[in-house]
Design a protein around this nucleic acid. Structure first.
Lengths: 155, 155
DNA sequence: CTGCGACTTGAAGCGCGCTTGAGGTCAAGC
DNA sequence: GCTTGACCTCAAGCGCGCTTCAAGTCGCAG
């Protein structure tokens, strides 16, 4: 159940309601219900509820008791996923997402974070080089390969 | 207590015993006791014990009942930190570190991981761009800034 | 020789990011 | 109309990566 990730199962909602657009253009109006969003984002409904509870996303309404979301939430989820992978915590992301106009403090912290990302990216690039080298390095134990270790040390 | 990270407090061990080397060249022989390693790596002794228990590092002996480590462990810890930041789990890192000669399966997985890092690095780079832009974007709410959102979507 | 303080062990605890369970509600298909 | 099944809420649980606790041991300064 868990391993079997998001499969499409409620595409009907979208395809039935198109009376306006010419082709199959991406609908930015019709609300998606949580199942759809889950399927498209690859996240579990429980995760979406969790995010909503934490203020990362918001539902635009209900269909019965099912949450419905604006299609725009998908972009937002992409952003969240991106930020998560960059090492941001949930509450931190929430702060970024709810950033007001005069929130100079937060903007400053964003710049700081960007600088941190510099270092992180550099480390990841070295890690990647190390892995690539390690993948076909003839050395017995990887740890004994100077090139492998060097890739990590530098920086 | 916790916030007050590793401060030097056992440097005596090293400085007292130097009868050999000419200058203050980095000693690759004299074992470091756990406090030293903790101070130099920025990790807590408990974390070092934890890593040892999980097979990520190994102590070379004891000084009384204190663990002692080869200075080489510092490189290894750097590698581990790097790998951790790249999203590797502890047990996964252990497998990489204990890689044997004929472990082709593991080498293949390293290549896969390297490819995953490609995507990850790309996302981080985009995240960085988004943060840099967001840091001085005049838009009211960051989420409303098309350039900010675009930085995340692409890719 | 006596403290002191940083280490030792093993087990329990914590924060984070969700997931799972119990018990319930609703919309749609038969 | 009734069943089905995906959602609902709220609370508890889980895996990961360490940290903390309790009780004990040791090396070194005074």
């Amino acid at each position: 159940m868990v391993g079997t990730a998001g499969r499409f199962d409620a595409v009907s909602t979208v395809s039935t309601a198109s009376t306006i657009s010419t082709v199959a253009a991406v609908d930015t109006e019709t609300p998606l219900d949580i199942g759809e969003v889950a399927a498209r984002s690859g996240l579990a409904p429980s995760a979406l509820r969790f995010y909503e509870q934490r203020g990362l996303i918001e539902s635009t309404g209900r269909n019965g008791l099912r949450r419905t979301y604006s299609p725009a939430v998908l972009d937002r989820l992409a952003l969240i996923a991106c930020a998560r992978q960059a090492g941001f915590g949930i509450s931190e992301i929430a702060r970024f997402l709810t950033a007001g106009p005069g929130d100079t403090e937060l903007r400053r912290r964003m710049a700081v974070k960007a600088d941190e990302l510099d270092g992180m990216i550099a480390r990841l690039v070295r890690m990647r080089a190390a892995l690539r080298h390690g993948a076909d390095c003839p050395e017995e134990r990887l740890v004994d390969c100077p090139e492998f270790m060097a890739a990590v040390k530098a920086g």
